[in-house]
């Protein structure tokens, strides 16, 4: 028997105005612990999809289900939805509103109606998990881009969600902070949290994701494993996606050897030497 998905969208459509449908008939179900990459060019509908997932936007057509129950957009239901499904916005400055990091992290738990001691505890835990203890009393506008990003993730963690949506998290980060973010995503996955990351970083999606959603002009064109997406040349061209370098290299090596692609492919540069050695034999 399949477990009840955490969040499900069925035939969801949303338009910002009459002649611009941002989402068209999108259906997807997300189960606990999943690692999903959301791909698609700018304007394909990824952000709109996320905003429908956490109830900020109400779809004009279709239904959203939280833990199997229909979301009716009443206050209590929306609060529960936003407790379970949290969104980390692309620009940290859109999300941060308090004048100290501590106060910022406390915003979410306070809204959940928790008592002061519990809020305090959650703030401490979030500060610790994002390594922000020394920043607790600092004003957010004096932090660097990477630090601000960690603050926005910490204030989502303080709400203890079960599904976290990341809208292009690495877009404003330098390589060091990007690597750090990838580490954080690994840790969160390890804790059993379902994660959905919208990204243009195809190498990261290939290395990290177990499932890929591909958006194009508001439609969900593909919902499968990374390998199925990247081996679908027609889809890649239609959507305008680049193949991950490691995948393309593996493909090239196998083609040169005249063999079909093996079941296990290297996803990171560390795994590559072993693969190459096997192929050379």
């Amino acid at each position: 028997m399949k477990a009840t998905p955490l969040l499900e969208l069925r035939h969801v459509s949303y338009s910002y105005d009459k002649d611009r449908p941002a989402l068209r008939d999108v259906s997807a179900a997300i189960c606990p612990g999943e690692r999903i990459a959301v791909l698609g060019n700018n304007g394909a509908g990824k952000s709109t999809f996320f905003l429908c997932c956490n109830g900020i936007l109400r779809p004009q057509k279709g239904t959203v289900y939280l833990e199997g129950k229909t979301v009716t957009y009443q206050k209590q239901q929306l609060l529960r939805l936003r407790e379970v499904v949290c969104l980390v916005f692309q620009d940290p400055d859109d999300q941060i509103l308090a004048s100290t990091v501590e106060a910022e992290i406390s915003f979410g738990p306070m809204n959940l109606g928790l008592g002061i001691p519990q809020v305090s505890r959650r703030v401490e835990e979030a500060l610790e998990s994002m390594d922000l203890q020394e920043y607790r009393a600092r004003p957010p506008h004096y932090l660097s881009g990477g630090e601000k990003k960690r603050v926005t993730i910490a204030d989502i963690l303080a709400m203890k969600p079960r599904l976290i949506l990341f809208d292009e998290p690495t877009s404003s980060l330098d390589p060091q902070n990007t690597a750090r973010l990838q580490q954080i995503l690994g840790e969160l996955s390890g804790r059993g949290m379902a994660l959905m990351v919208a990204t243009h970083d195809i190498e990261f999606a290939y290395a990290w994701a177990r499932r890929v959603l591909v958006f194009h002009q508001g439609k969900l064109l593909a919902d499968c494993s990374p390998r199925e997406v990247f081996s679908n040349e027609a889809l890649m061209e239609q959507v305008g996606l680049k193949k991950p370098i490691l995948y393309a290299v593996s493909q090239a090596i196998c083609a040169a050897k005249g063999v079909s692609l093996p079941r296990v492919l290297p996803k990171t540069i560390e795994e590559f030497p072993t693969f190459y050695k096997e192929m050379s034999e």
Binding site: L79, L87, F107, M159
Partner: peptide, 24 residues
């Protein structure tokens, strides 16, 4: 535009009409 985005972000964290922070 910023106001619109920030309001979305506040709502996404359960904003119910009153801004409350933890007081030290």
């Amino acid at each position: 535009a910023q106001a619109g985005r920030s309001f979305d972000a506040m709502e996404a964290r359960g904003y119910d009409g009153e801004i409350r922070f933890l007081e030290r």
